[in-house]
């Protein structure tokens, strides 16, 4: 019974803040405190949202953005893990690349967009490239950290047992780095989703970011808000999905929490 009670309590705690914001929003728009041409009421936004779904417009733009993200993310994650592993394993590789990483990494990905459009045009390639960069950094850094934080005592076990380098990599180093790598992948997907919208808002003819910019030009705040919240909800769902996957793949890493 206590458990059920706790469950209700935790559900309440999770939804209380968003519900409060929603009610406040409803109150100020219904009471006429704010100009509804600037901030439409949530009811209007939900209606627009429904209409966008019905016309297929939302789905079309969302799927366009989503596939861009998938492409750029896959490229960024794979190369991040690959280069990160190399940098984590080899001290000289780390030295050679670390200054380059140091200079390039602090550049916000938005700053790359004009250059990438110049090089790759306004179409798919430039978007995918932006997402690639956004995904690459968090995956790279977390992979390096993961590889470097391997417990020396566990490596010694493998040395004592005369394991080959390949076996040490596959059975000790990589499993030990996996939680960190997966955290990097999760962060990378988050950035990728942010990047696609930013890239589409600057220059595009389709996608959820384009939909928002176009609606602003037409002065349709309800469409803008519907788009903005779609981004938020999709981002939340993706992260929740990845978190579940992480817990399933790395059950051993959560055993201590389970015990508590």
């Amino acid at each position: 019974m206590n458990k059920a009670k706790n469950k209700y309590l935790s559900f309440f705690q999770i939804i209380i803040a968003p519900v409060f914001v929603l009610l406040l929003w409803l109150a100020v728009t219904e009471a006429g405190v704010v100009n509804t041409n600037i901030l439409p009421s949530p009811v209007k936004v939900v209606k627009t949202f429904g209409a966008l779904i019905e016309s297929g417009k939302l789905w079309k733009n969302l799927s366009t953005s989503f596939f861009r993200v998938l492409k750029g993310f896959a490229l960024g994650a794979v190369s991040g893990i690959f280069i990160g592993t190399a940098m984590g394993l080899s001290g000289s590789m780390n030295k050679i690349l670390s200054s380059l990483v140091g200079i390039l990494r602090p550049i916000p990905m938005i700053a790359w967009i004009p250059m990438l459009i110049l090089w790759l045009g306004i179409g798919e390639k430039s978007k995918v490239a932006v997402i690639f960069i956004g995904t690459f950094w968090p995956v790279l850094l977390n992979t390096i950290t993961g590889i470097l934080s391997v417990d020396g005592k566990l490596l010694e076990v493998a040395t004592v047992l005369e394991k080959s380098r390949l076996e040490v990599l596959g059975k000790v180093v990589m499993p030990s780095a996996t939680p960190s790598i997966i955290t990097g992948v999760r962060l990378g997907f988050g950035t990728a989703w942010t990047c696609v919208v930013a890239a589409e808002m600057i220059a595009a003819s389709s996608g959820i970011g384009y939909m928002i910019t176009y609606a602003r030009e037409l002065s349709q705040p309800d469409v803008v808000l519907a788009g903005v919240f779609t981004i938020g909800i999709v981002g939340l769902l993706i992260d929740a999905g990845l978190l579940r996957l992480q817990k399933k793949l790395l059950r051993w890493n959560y055993l201590r929490d389970e015990r508590k």
Binding site: K153, L154, E156, V157, V160, E162, K171, V172, P175, S176, T178, L250, W252, N253
Partner: peptide, 16 residues
């Protein structure tokens, strides 16, 4: 392989 070692901490792989 002629010599085996048991460490002070069990040193097991937590993921296996």
């Amino acid at each position: 392989r002629e010599v085996g070692m048991v460490f002070q901490e069990a040193r097991l792989f937590p993921w296996s």
